[in-house]
Amino acid sequence: MKKLSVFILLSLLLFACSKQIPEHKFSYVGEWQSKEMYLLILADGTVSYRRLQNGGTTSINAPLKEFVGDDFIVGLAFFTTTFKVTKAPYQIEGQWFIVVDGIKLSKSIEEL
């Protein structure tokens, strides 16, 4: 019972720390993916990330802290990760793309 209470408390803190996506950055919201990377950004500031690289997997599930230019920072307190956006969300023939950490991702067609 104690472990469940701690889990619930930590979950509430995690989601309470996320910042809603600013209106001028709303094009970032969505499910983005390539063969080696998956990135989900929700309007409430929740971010889920998974990357396959060098035979291993890196994943992050944390709140968005802030945008710095086109880049965005995800994490809690001192444990943060900066996602380098070399090309902000853009459209080609109705399909959305973004380039994050050197990887070109396409946006899922389904609305969130």
Rank of each mutant, 00 (worst) to 15 (best):
E31C: 11
E31T: 11
S11H: 05
Y49V: 01
E111L: 11
E66V: 08
V29H: 12
V85K: 05
P22N: 15
K25M: 15
S5E: 06
F7M: 01
L13P: 01
Q95K: 10
I103C: 04
E93C: 00
A88R: 12
F26R: 15
F67T: 10
W32V: 10
R51N: 07
V6N: 03
S27C: 09
G102A: 06
L76D: 02
I60M: 14
G55L: 03
E31L: 14
T80Y: 05
D101V: 02
K35L: 12
I21W: 15
E36N: 14
L12D: 04
P89C: 03
V99H: 04
K104R: 12
A88K: 12
Y28S: 12
N54F: 09
E111H: 13
I92K: 13
Q53P: 00
E110F: 13
V85H: 05
A77V: 04
V29F: 14
S108N: 12
I98P: 08
S27W: 09
K104T: 14
F26A: 15
W32C: 10
G56S: 05
E31H: 14
S59M: 14
V68K: 14
K107T: 03
G75D: 06
K104Y: 05
K2C: 00
A77K: 08
D71A: 06
S106E: 11
F7W: 04
T57H: 04
S18F: 15
F79M: 11
A77N: 07
V29P: 11
L40R: 12
C17S: 15
S11N: 10
Y28A: 13
L13H: 05
I92H: 10
Q20M: 14
Q95G: 01
L42E: 09
E111W: 09
L4I: 02
Q53A: 03
V74R: 08
F83N: 03
I98D: 09
K87C: 01
K65R: 11
L64S: 08
I73D: 02
F15T: 13
L9W: 05
F67Q: 11
F72S: 07
K2H: 01
G55E: 05
L10S: 02
S108L: 08
Q95V: 10
R51P: 01
M1C: 04
K3Q: 09
F7V: 00
E23N: 13
I41F: 12
I98N: 07
S27R: 14
L76E: 06
D101P: 01
E66I: 06
V29K: 13
E31V: 10
Q53G: 03
D44W: 08
Q95S: 02
L76K: 04
G75L: 04
D71W: 11
A62C: 05
D70C: 04
G75K: 06
L9C: 07
E93D: 06
Y38R: 12
T46E: 12
F79L: 10
T81M: 09
M1R: 03
S106V: 02
I8Y: 01
I109K: 08
K107Y: 03
K35W: 10
L112V: 03
A62P: 02
S11E: 06
P22F: 15
W96F: 14
L76P: 01
V74W: 11
E93G: 00
K104P: 02
K87D: 09
G55N: 05
M1Y: 07
V85R: 04
Q20K: 15
L9E: 05
N54E: 11
T80K: 10
A43C: 05
L14Q: 12
I8C: 00
D101K: 03
